[in-house]
Amino acid sequence: MYGEFKLEMPQQLDEALALIAEDPAEVLSGGTNLMIELRARKLRPEQVVSLDALSELRGIEVDGNRITLGARTTISDILRCDDMAEFGPSLLDAANLFAGQMVRNMGTVGGNIACSSPAADLVPPLMSLDAEITLVSSKGTRKVALCDYYLSYKKDVRAPSEMITSVSWKKLAKNSSNSFYKLARRIGDAITVTGVAVTLTMDGDRCTTARIALGAVAPTVFRATNAEKILEGQILTDDLITTAAQQAKAQSSPISDVRASAEYRLHTVGKLTHRLLTQARDKLV
């Protein structure tokens, strides 16, 4: 397996960008997805570019109102960050139920976003926080809203010559609630069957902003914008929440696989959206 490709270990970001600009390559971050695909020979790259030496890509920074996670920040780093419960409660929820300890120590935020899996657990929370990612190539830098990043199943807007260097979001507004529910076939180390992240911001009993990001119920993680629209600007009655949950369900297009049927995913995405919205409202009002 190891002899079949060239392994590059750039010491500088520029060097890494130059390598991926020239030849097709797979970027290796924590390797918790990539190694599995290499071992199964689903991928047979000629070049693998390891980000291991690029320590500047790892870390959690707070700059005024903005929180930035370097792409190589690990799941364990998120769990070790004392302020994460304030910065991104939903992200903490996701990190707490992410894989097992070994994978949490290796797996990174950048890898989770870049693998473009509909079941990537950090993505619904980040989307519910209106996160934005930074894509860098040897030609320059651009920022993309996470909710615009994914195109279709395992397809995204990233060019082969680009790398994700960070993801960032604005601190939660006052009077906000943010949470994530991971539904899986068991608690520890399981792939998500239905993932729901919700952010509500209230002004009195009126909802000013609603974010609903859904995982594993469509080809990509996505925002249930129809549901969000129903809530924004309104007083959140039980009926309204029920209607929003139905909308979230209507916008979902899950598949059936060995983990669960499409019907079950639809059933639970409705129930969980309803539950998370109700809990958020009850906490704030």
């Binding site: 097992g100 076939r185 068991r186 608690i187 520890g188 180390d189 399981a190 792939i191 060995v258």
Partner: peptide, 14 residues
């Protein structure tokens, strides 16, 4: 269910 990603035994958390 050809791997432990599909075949699920209870973990310590379960």
């Amino acid at each position: 269910t050809p791997s432990f990603s599909e075949y699920l035994m209870p973990t310590s958390m379960d």
